[in-house]
């Protein structure tokens, strides 16, 4: 039987559930943008969308391909600068939620978007931090949407571009970060992992439909503790309709089921 929803749709709807009404959310493009727009249209009508490039509370049009795309600037209340958004909103402490991506995420939810291999003689060089380090340093809640593959979840990142809990429960506090104990959620096609604040490590909080904890462990490069998990509620028909008809009508971002 064909699935009623795709894995991308499942991840996006689940991610959106971590956004509350009235949140200020810093978003780029791609799946985080879709999740944020979905939240805005579904349950967070008073959410404030902030774009790194300085757009405050725009109405997003269609399917932007960049944070410089005019589609992320439509009817904004202000067009500003990087300094306005990353300094004046984010470092200032006004971002409730921020989205990150990266090549590697380790057991402390540190993220690498700089290099695979040694920094001084890289095997593969990635684009670098961009605003990601700033988002991970200052936001009160961090959401990461990614495919669940073992190589993406090593014990330790080759390079820590953006801080999770660094090396333990008080790692951020010791480092001097102003948001020392943020919530961090990693939403994958297999599970939702969350930081356990008593250990500073990721644990499986919820499982995607029909996924076992064993399967998550097999696909994760670091050790995950046993413990209670909740099932992730699959998207409802109404949620899928909103997603497909209003949020991503062209299917530009989200694959629908085969």
């Amino acid at each position: 039987m064909a699935e009623a929803y795709s894995l991308d749709e499942l991840m996006v709807v689940e991610a959106s559930r971590h956004i509350s009404d009235w949140d200020t959310v810093m978003v780029g493009t791609g799946l985080p943008m879709v999740a944020s727009l979905f939240a805005l249209k579904n349950h967070a009508p008073n959410m404030c969308y902030v774009v790194e490039t300085g757009g405050i509370a725009p109405e997003i049009l269609g399917t932007p391909s960049s944070v410089t795309d005019a589609r992320v600037m439509y009817r904004a209340v202000r067009h500003g600068s990087l300094l306005d958004a990353l300094g004046g909103v984010l470092q200032r402490g006004l971002a409730d939620v921020a989205f990150l991506g990266g090549a590697q995420i380790d057991q402390f939810a540190n993220v690498n978007s700089t290099v695979i291999g040694d920094y001084n003689s890289p095997k593969v060089r990635f684009p670098g931090s961009g605003g990601a380090n700033d988002l991970a340093s200052h936001a009160k809640k961090v959401l990461i949407i990614t495919r669940h593959e073992k190589r993406r979840f090593p014990e330790r990142c080759d390079f820590i571009t953006s801080p999770g809990y660094i090396d333990g429960p008080d790692g951020r506090k010791r480092a001097g970060l102003t948001s020392p104990y943020p919530d961090i959620f990693v939403i994958t096609d297999l599970a939702v992992m969350a930081i356990d604040k008593s250990t500073g490590r990721l644990r499986v909080e919820a499982l995607m439909p029909e996924v076992s904890l064993e399967r998550v462990k097999e696909n994760t490069g670091f050790e995950l503790p046993d413990g209670d998990t909740e099932p992730v509620e699959p998207p409802t028909e109404a949620e899928l309709r909103l997603l497909r008809e209003e949020v991503d009508p062209g299917g530009e971002y989200l694959k629908t089921p085969e």
């Binding site: 700089t114 390079f159 571009t161 102003t178």
Partner: peptide, 17 residues
């Protein structure tokens, strides 16, 4: 001054270099 990059290799590895 900045409060970004604390605790990361952007600081640590480049300082070590």
């Amino acid at each position: 001054p900045s409060k970004s990059m604390l605790g990361t290799d952007i600081l640590n590895k480049q300082i070590a270099n």
